[in-house]
Design a protein around this nucleic acid. Sequence first.
RNA 1: GGGGAGAUACUCAAGCGGCCAACGAGGUCAGACUGUAAAUCUGAUGGCACUGCCUUCGGCGGUUCGAAUCCGCCUCUCCCCA
Length: 384
Amino acid sequence: MSTHATGPESFARSCVDLIERRDLEERLSAGRPLRVKFGMDPSSPDLHIGHCVQLFKLRALQQQGHQIVLIVGDSTAMVGDPSGRNKLRPQLTRAEVEANLDTYVSQVSKVLDLGRTEVHRNSEWFDAMKFEDVLRLASRMTVARMLERDTFQKRVQESEPIGIHEFLYPLMQGWDSVMIRCDVELGGTDQLFNLIVGRHLQEQCSMPPQIVMTLPLINGFDGRKMSKSYDNSVPLTDSAREMYHKVKRVDDAQVARWFELLTELPPAQIASLTAGDLLDAKDRLAAEITRFFHGEAGLATVREAPELPWPKGAAARLPLANLIQALGLSATTSEARRASEQGGVSVDGQVVRLPGQIVEAGAKALLITVGKRRAARVLPPTPG
RNA sequence: GGGGAGAUACUCAAGCGGCCAACGAGGUCAGACUGUAAAUCUGAUGGCACUGCCUUCGGCGGUUCGAAUCCGCCUCUCCCCA
């Protein structure tokens, strides 16, 4: 595993920005493992496959023998990253951050070998800072330079608020790099500014400036920017079934890119897959990703309707809509009701348009489908 | 410090005393068509064992038979002037 003697070509594969290439060559030629930093903002509880672009890259570098340093931005999360935002981000409380942190680390462990990963919270150093330290840090950056950022400019134009504390975010992220003596920092292309601030701060501290590598942001499966509000992301906590189907819905134009950034298939194979029938390619893509996170067994369950027990604590006779909701096939009974009224619900192959129809727990399993991609086989209640 | 504007459902955005669970757009969901895609068309879209009931229009109080709409205070934001 200790073959970190790989060249810059392999190291920087798939990167969009590489600053500076010469620095990278130089540092790699020294032959020691590089300290590669990746910061995570624990501001939402779940990672999605968009984050995996970075994680897979880290995985590859880890396998080449480099030292991955994960920074959990618990202090920065309480500031809120202004990148890519035209609105003030809500600041999180410590309790919220702590809750998100656990789920993060366990999700990351699906991709990285945590035993060989250094993990820090940036509160380790920020909690110890005095106000005068903050001022000293703040004095290393100018307002003019901050305002060059398009996100801030846009917000000024659109009369959206900008908090002074938001100016501190890039400085904090950059300071993380100083504290861990970072060699290479990885981020999405939207992070370029923040990453460069790290370089700048290291130089000011008479430290060799970190190499900055950005990776492409992938769009959601519908082709638009991946975002919670569009509901087009694929959370890592998705079941095998959800994950498979969401990935399979990926926009045609993005299939090749997803293959490149989210699977470990060799480029030649990707090329031949995407040159063939696109439906087959999507099936393979969805299968690869699902297998990675859920294993062969998880993938195997995908094409069958899952078997679900009769809802615990529920009566043996339920209106259809309530049963569907209780089974988790819809979020609310109203939603189940609507689907049924519009002909989207079937029981044992029969379309049922009456959401109030009473369904009895019978002796054999009932096949219930909701819409095109939700289905379950409901088992009879187990006596006792 | 002074003056002005504003806060509505997932998002944007109408409504300005009863006809408001609240126009419209986007999103989402369902149906048709398809390639389990995209585009297009149709319908739905607060919750609920739903011909009815319950909870919503920044927060708290008040006026009224009745308030998203009027009044008071509070919180937050934007703009102009200093």
